[in-house]
């Protein structure tokens, strides 16, 4: 038996979860997929007094793709990657999710749990940051919606108060002139990213109309390379543009040095991935626009 003793509750109603959080606050930990929490329990790096297992909560497994995507707190990553509607409408999420651990991890792991855990090397926060996703947050007496930009505060630290939880994670619908790409460098597939990059590019003919670049693993929270984004708007979608954007994006990062790689190496990789991801995203945007035109 590895984890330290804890009280265990598995409520069936969201109101009961929120009531427990109100009463117990910091003493309580929410257990969704458990792919981050249970290792921490096993190593006793986390020793919560109370574990609130939300896997039996009615309605938490909802996946709504009607007006943008809204993902409930117990929706597994595996379900998202297998949902053909989601794969079609949110290709960046579908591409990034392949990089989350291994199939056995994604069978249990949840999208919302990964966002709430806010590991700086995790993929889901990078996607939310890139697509200006939002998080629906509730406590027993209030609800609010927070943009990804404000949600991620520091390493494994979010804007959540101790009595609050994320009850939904949302992505806006993707424009028909937009292409996206996700790239990552890790020591082995399934390991945490050394650097990951998510991009979205909207085109107006052969010009960039809009650009979004999010980089993971180079800062305490996923970084938006806003100077590179601004540079891209109005530029031609040619290799030289993407090379320059990569150089600018790399200059915006301030990565850490650790045993997996030096700061200089990470910065170099970030620039190269941004350049490549933009090229791929532009190609996909063109394909998508062509596809839509052909159908109309």
């Amino acid at each position: 038996m590895k984890p330290a003793p804890f009280e265990y509750a598995d409520p069936l109603k969201v109101a009961d979860v929120l009531q427990l959080l109100r009463e117990r606050g910091d003493e309580a930990k929410i257990l969704a997929g458990g792919q981050s929490l249970v290792p921490l329990l096993n190593m006793r790096m986390a020793q919560p007094e109370l574990v609130v297992d939300i896997n039996r909560v009615d309605g938490f497994d909802s996946l709504d793709n009607a007006h943008g995507l809204t993902i409930g707190p117990t929706v597994r990553q595996r379900r998202v990657e297998r949902d053909q509607e989601v794969v079609r409408s949110q290709p960046l999420l579908a591409e990034a999710i392949q990089w989350v651990g291994h199939a056995q991890i994604r069978t249990r792991g949840t999208v919302v749990g990964s966002l709430a855990h806010a590991d700086p090397a995790a993929e889901m926060p990078v996607v939310w940051q890139c697509l200006d996703g939002t998080l629906e947050i509730s406590s027993s007496d209030r609800s609010r919606t927070v943009a990804a930009r404000e949600f991620f505060v520091h390493i494994m630290t979010t804007d959540l108060d101790p009595d609050e939880m994320v009850v939904g994670a949302c992505l806006p619908p993707m424009g028909s002139d937009t292409g996206t790409a996700f790239l990552e460098v890790a020591r082995r597939h399934g390991d945490f990213a050394m650097v990951s990059v998510a991009t979205a590019l909207a085109l107006d003919g052969d010009m960039c109309r809009f650009a979004s670049i999010a980089i993971g693993g180079v800062a305490p929270v996923p970084l938006r390379a806003s100077q590179a984004e601004r540079f891209l708007v109005g530029e031609k979608t040619i290799d030289e543009t993407f090379i320059e954007a990569g150089v600018r994006a790399a200059a915006e990062t301030d990565p850490p040095t650790d045993i997996h790689g030096s700061a200089d190496y990470r910065r170099e990789v970030a620039g190269a991935l941004v350049e490549r991801a933009l090229g791929i995203a532009a190609g996909r945007a063109r394909e998508r626009a062509g596809f839509v035109d052909a159908r109309s």
């Binding site: 265990y8 598995d10 257990l31 458990g34 792919q35 249970v38 290792p39 096993n42 190593m43 574990v51 297992d53 595996r78 651990g101 291994h102 199939a103 056995q104 991890i105 069978t107 249990r108």
Partner: peptide, 24 residues
Amino acid sequence: HGVCGCCTVLFDGEPVRSCLMLAV
């Protein structure tokens, strides 16, 4: 802690790390 995969079992037919789940 979910790295080696030796403890993989099927949970409702899908592979999971049994060391990353509680018996309850």
